[in-house]
């Protein structure tokens, strides 16, 4: 009995109808937070004493990297739940999370390269942080490819969930790489246990952008999951009703 709520959560129909209500709010929150954060960060936050204006790329670089890492856990944990409880919904979440995570990883690598040129003097180095981030991109692409590679959907789900789970090893490595080894990449600025080494006038717009990215991530993930569910369940009655009602 205690697990009943959990199994109901796994029902695609229930999920589809519940999230319908959340989507507009998530969309509104992401648009507002991201616009406020962008204008605040790019227009009103002071420039950095050493890096001048080029530091402003952190307002995209840092939130994208945060979500690239957090999104991997979302993908892997959904895969694990799917493996254990054989839940269609959680496999759909896993499949939906892979391309979003890949795009966020690419954004953080790309903005990092753009930032690296004026500050470090190079676009790319093979240090531990940047290389492990590149491996994360390949893991996301691997999960995407594997989930499309097998025509039997259940087999593809299982295989990509296993790959996602094995890849979780990389996440703490990315996170701690700047502390464990000598890297060109600087250590973390925002720390949970100690005080952050960023001035409050720059930290608050950054925080706004991070929360905005979280909202945008949730919005994109839900929208993509819903689309995948409709396609998988297209023969069921509820999906037919939703499709007919949407027109």
């Amino acid at each position: 009995m205690a697990w009943q709520w959990f199994h109901r959560l796994g029902s695609p129909r229930w999920f589809y109808q519940k999230t319908n209500v959340w989507l507009p709010w998530l969309a509104l929150a992401s648009v507002v937070l991201l616009s406020v954060g962008t204008v605040w960060g790019l227009g009103f936050a002071p420039e950095d004493a050493k890096q001048g204006n080029s530091y402003r790329i952190i307002f995209i670089h840092v939130p994208a990297a945060f979500l690239a890492l957090a999104g991997y856990y979302i993908m892997a944990i959904s895969g694990a739940i799917g493996l254990i409880w054989k839940m269609k919904l959680s496999f759909a979440v896993m499949r939906a999370a892979a391309p979003i995570g890949a795009v966020l990883t690419f954004i953080s690598l790309f903005t990092g390269a753009v930032w690296g040129k004026p500050t470090w003097g190079t676009y790319w180095v093979w240090d531990a942080r940047i290389t492990s981030m590149l491996i994360l991109l390949f893991l996301y692409i691997g999960v995407m490819a594997l989930s499309q590679a097998v025509s039997r959907e259940q087999v593809a789900d299982k295989a990509s969930a296993l790959l996602a789970l094995v890849g979780t090893v990389n996440i703490p490595i990315i996170y701690k790489s700047v502390d464990w080894w000598f890297t060109l990449h600087q250590p973390a600025t925002i720390r949970l246990t100690e005080s952050s080494s960023i001035d409050p006038s720059m930290f608050y717009p950054l925080l706004t952008m991070i929360i905005g990215f979280y909202c945008m991530y949730a919005w994109t993930l839900l929208t993509h999951t819903r689309a995948l569910l409709l396609r998988r369940e297209v023969r069921t009655q509820w999906a037919q009703q939703e499709l007919a009602g949407g027109k």
Binding site: A49, K50, I58, T119, S197, D199, M202
Partner: peptide
């Protein structure tokens, strides 16, 4: 190699 601190001038 720049450090992880960001401060206004």
């Amino acid at each position: 190699k720049h450090d992880e601190t960001y401060t206004p001038p």
